[in-house]
């Protein structure tokens, strides 16, 4: 019940800026890249940096070192460092990697952030309990754009 209400609330929130928002099912990947902003607008890099360090959201630093974030302790090394990511990838490619990296790197361990399933034994966040119905994506379209806005600043 509480879950449904929260999901309902999330849907309403997600619906607010929705004029040009691309729903998960309609995202087009070309060679792993997504050409257009998922919100139709540019993201906010400062907000993106927060999403990337939040454990319940992007938690990118769990797997990636980002030297531009010296205050964030315990950066992991499962994936490559993101330093200079914008020299290696275009904005469209970075958007595709953040939304669903498995289109770029087959079988990647990197989670798919703009995806709603299907998942095997999907849980309700980190509670260990099951979740009935369709899970909202880990990141909203706006959060994906915020992260992309931060990533394009990572040049060496």
């Amino acid at each position: 019940m509480k879950q449904q209400m929260m999901l309902g609330a999330a849907l309403v929130l997600a619906a607010l800026p929705a004029m040009a928002e691309t729903p998960v099912a309609e995202v087009k990947y070309v060679d792993g890249a997504i050409a257009e902003s998922l919100t139709g607008a540019p993201g906010d890099a400062a907000a993106g940096a927060k999403v990337m360090t939040n454990r319940g959201q992007g938690n990118c630093v769990a797997c990636h070192v980002i030297s531009a974030m010296p205050d964030v302790p315990f950066q992991g090394n499962i994936g490559p460092t993101l330093d200079g990511a914008a020299d290696r990838w275009t904005e469209a490619e970075l958007r595709g990697i953040v939304a669903d990296a498995k289109h770029t790197f087959e079988g990647s361990m990197m989670p798919s952030f703009y995806k709603t399933g299907p998942y095997i034994r999907q849980g309700d966040g980190y509670t260990g309990k099951g979740f009935e119905g369709t899970l909202p994506p880990i990141l909203t379209a706006e959060q994906v754009e915020d992260v992309v806005a931060y990533l394009v600043t990572l040049k060496e």
């Binding site: 454990r55 315990f74 950066q75 499962i78 361990m109 798919s112 998942y119 095997i120 849980g123």
Partner: peptide, 21 residues
């Protein structure tokens, strides 16, 4: 499994010796 789609092997076979956070 799960929304992060990780298996035991992702962490304990492919990445032992590495840090996750």
């Amino acid at each position: 499994t799960g929304q992060l789609e990780l298996s035991c092997a992702n962490c304990h076979e492919d990445n032992y010796g590495n840090h996750i956070r």
